[in-house]
């Protein structure tokens, strides 16, 4: 092939690619995914559990983490709030805005996978990395935190399935999950 022909072909190819790059995707294009319930009623208890179990300041209560958890037990959203839940100790309860910040962080981790899990009515939550890490199936610095079927697991998986899980007494599994982890000594001494 002559050099001039070769150069012409390359130039045309580059021109087509440049035009396509500028015009193929509208600036306001959005990709739709199926996302789990983000309401205060549906996700609020899940967010509170995540704050308690995952959101300590030395774990996911940091902006340096991909999965970021906000709440009164860890990182606060408002610059005037401190990591303290008790009003008597100068703290404030976790706010709906913090629940939403945690929601956005969690759902944005693997949006396509999250969409698939929600589309499947939560039948396969283990497709999500955060579930596998929490269950200890995948390497996790914090170790294995939950066991399939326990209150913690039911709190998360029922949310992914679009349901509210209640125990025998009608208490939300997320509320029961707050009791984890249990320390045999110091916890008991304060009860």
């Amino acid at each position: 092939m002559k050099r001039s022909v070769w150069l012409a072909l390359v130039s045309v190819h580059a021109l087509v690619a440049a035009v396509a790059a500028c015009s193929a995707v509208p600036a306001d294009a959005r990709i739709g995914i199926l996302a789990p319930d983000d309401s205060e009623q549906g996700f609020g208890p899940v967010a509170d559990y995540l704050d308690h179990r995952c959101g300590s300041l030395d774990c996911h209560g940091q902006t340096s983490r991909n999965f970021r958890v906000w709440g009164c037990e860890g990182m606060r959203l408002s610059p005037t709030d401190v990591p303290q839940c008790s009003r008597n100790l100068g703290g404030t309860a976790t706010t709906p805005d913090e629940h939403q910040a945690t929601y956005r962080s969690l759902v944005a981790l693997e949006p396509a996978v999250m969409s698939a899990v929600v589309a499947g009515h939560g039948a396969h939550p283990e497709l999500l990395t955060f579930v596998r890490k929490a269950r200890g199936i995948e390497s996790h610095k914090g170790g294995s935190l939950i066991t399939p079927g326990d209150f913690q697991d039911r709190c998360i998986t029922s949310w992914l399935a679009g349901q509210t899980d209640l125990d025998e007494a009608g208490v939300s599994s997320c509320r029961s999950a707050i009791s984890f982890p249990t320390f045999p000594g110091l916890d008991a001494s304060t009860e």
Partner: peptide, 13 residues
């Protein structure tokens, strides 16, 4: 009132 998940330095938090 919370717990330390991995940090051995108190001042880390």
């Amino acid at each position: 009132l919370t717990y330390s998940s991995r940090e051995g330095s108190c001042a880390g938090c």
